[in-house]
Design a binder for these strands. Structure first.
Lengths: 117, 117
DNA sequence: CCTACTTACAACTGCTTGGTTGTACAGCTG
DNA sequence: CAGCTGTACAACCAAGCAGTTGTAAGTAGG
């Protein structure tokens, strides 16, 4: 374990910030869209079902967070994954969610889909 | 890869929600405090440097998210980690952050600590 | 029974931020 | 040069949430 026991405050902030960047459905969709490979803003917006402005905004957030790389080629901007660990994070969460809900499904007489906040 | 390619919307929501729960420094501190083992609200509040009400509130959030287990014994409430995967998540983020900042340190003539938003 | 203690909840405030709208800027094309 | 396309930025509105304050409920102890 290379992590100090009382997490220093600055590290706590950075970790929370990283999670905050990933806490938005639109950004998860964009990252998901990037699983198919690098693409332009318009292409990603289409894949994720977002407006061009909204996609650009969220891509900017992901880029400033260091999760994406940007490459401008002529008139278009190519975004690509800069930190592949985000996929590992998402997979871990998906596994945990699957475990949780399968556990729930084993307990509840399920009347309907468990989705609904 | 057991994860569908265009992530279904409900799953996207759940993943984002999980990250949102982890996107708060106070909650990261509480989880960090729980690395030393289960403890009462007051104890955790002290460890994390939070007020009792604030700690209770955030512990409630973590509990509703399924990350913590609650056990009331007499007058006190014992909270414990229910989903150890959160630690894996935090370690992954810490590693990624370390990589990122070491990469930055290799580029920048570092005048000072790179922490500072 | 009365007091002290621990936990949880409700109300309030201020800040942050997501999505939209409008627009500016840069590059390609004819 | 003019028009079109792709991208980014700024301003606005509305919703959500963190932290505080106050307090209620439940338990243990004298």
């Amino acid at each position: 374990m290379s992590i100090p026991s009382p997490l220093p405050d600055p590290l706590v902030e950075l970790v929370a910030e990283r999670f905050r960047v990933l806490s938005e459905p639109a950004r998860i969709k964009l990252l998901d869209a990037l699983r198919a490979g690098p693409a332009s803003v318009g292409e990603l917006a289409a894949r994720a079902g977002l407006s061009q402005q909204n996609a650009s905004k969220h891509l900017g957030v992901l880029h400033s967070a260091g999760l994406l790389e940007r490459a401008r080629t002529g008139n278009t901007a190519q975004y690509a994954i800069a930190d592949p660990s985000v996929f590992t994070l998402c997979e871990l969460v998906c596994d945990a969610l699957r475990d949780r809900y399968s556990a729930l499904q084993a307990v509840i007489p399920p009347p309907q889909a468990p989705i609904g906040r």
